[in-house]
Simulated scan of single mutants.
Amino acid sequence: MTTTAQPTTTARPPRGAEIRRHELAAFLRSRRERIAPEQVGLPRGTRRRTPGLRREEVAQLSAVGVTWYTWLEQARDIQVSVQVLDALARTLLLDASERAHLFKLAAATDPAPGASCPSVTPALRETLRALEPFPACVQNSRYDILAYNRTYARLMGDLDAVPPEDRNCMLLVYTDSDWRASIVHLEETMRLMAARLRASMAGHLGDPAWKTLLKRLERESPEFRENWERYEVVGNRSKTKEFLNPYVGHLTLEHTDLWLGPQAGPRLVTYTPKNEETRDRLEKLLELALGPREAARL
């Protein structure tokens, strides 16, 4: 009797996307399990068996469906938007390295202000330093702060203490207490910035980073929602701005935008003093930012 050899089958090695999904699922579970409910404002209760947060709690805090988030931790083949990844990163209290790892596993581009920008070259950073004591920074049309000098870092509080993913002028003006307290004409500034954002956003309506910023502003600031619903549009222009600096007092500055390319993309933002009193106070602000030892070398 002859036997017919049965065809042998070999398991198909997992593809790159499948490997990433499993790594993403494991990473999310590990980050979820390390967070105590109290860290995100939830009661621990007496019947909690799960270490850290439950899946439904992560879903609720991130404004996504429980089933969808469960599938994500099960490495199902589903699409993940950058808005959801951004929300998960905040819910899970990820630091900058963990956030970057999350987006890499999801094969997505991080829309946060902390992302790198090719326009910010070493030469441009040196230019920012050379402008001191005048405050200066590099922003894009979405108001992300891409780079800044030491005087700008102290212009409205302590920018170095703000997480890189939150270094966006719109977010700071509408949600950060230090920035809000430092702007003399706050209501006018907020309304103008919302109008400028709407004008700029016309060319980026499908951009995930813009949609992420807009949704976060609408979620966190009733004042922004009110100004956004006015549908006002304003172009870019130089103007005089007044600040009540927490370190040196009142500053009157001339705001100027210097565009770094032919399109309305990244721009160098400078603040020059309108009077001698402001100039002297900027010198003092730089000394405070540098510290006594470094200031003595100038």
Rank of each mutant, 00 (worst) to 15 (best):
R55N: 08
L286D: 00
S141V: 05
L214F: 08
P111F: 07
S182E: 00
P163Y: 03
F243N: 00
K104E: 15
A87R: 07
K239Q: 12
H250M: 12
T109R: 13
E38Y: 09
P292N: 10
I35Q: 02
E277M: 05
T252V: 15
R54M: 11
T121M: 08
L61V: 04
A161W: 02
P164M: 03
L290Q: 11
M190S: 02
M156C: 08
A63D: 15
Q60W: 11
A202E: 14
R99Y: 01
K104V: 13
V40W: 02
F27D: 04
E287F: 11
D257G: 10
G41H: 09
E226P: 01
K284S: 14
R49I: 09
R150Q: 07
G235E: 13
H255R: 12
L186H: 06
S97V: 09
T151S: 12
T121V: 08
R279T: 10
S182P: 01
R15S: 15
V66F: 05
A130V: 06
R99I: 00
E287Q: 14
L124K: 01
E98C: 06
T50G: 03
G45H: 07
H185G: 07
E165G: 04
S177R: 14
V80H: 05
L124D: 04
M170W: 04
L146Q: 06
E242L: 07
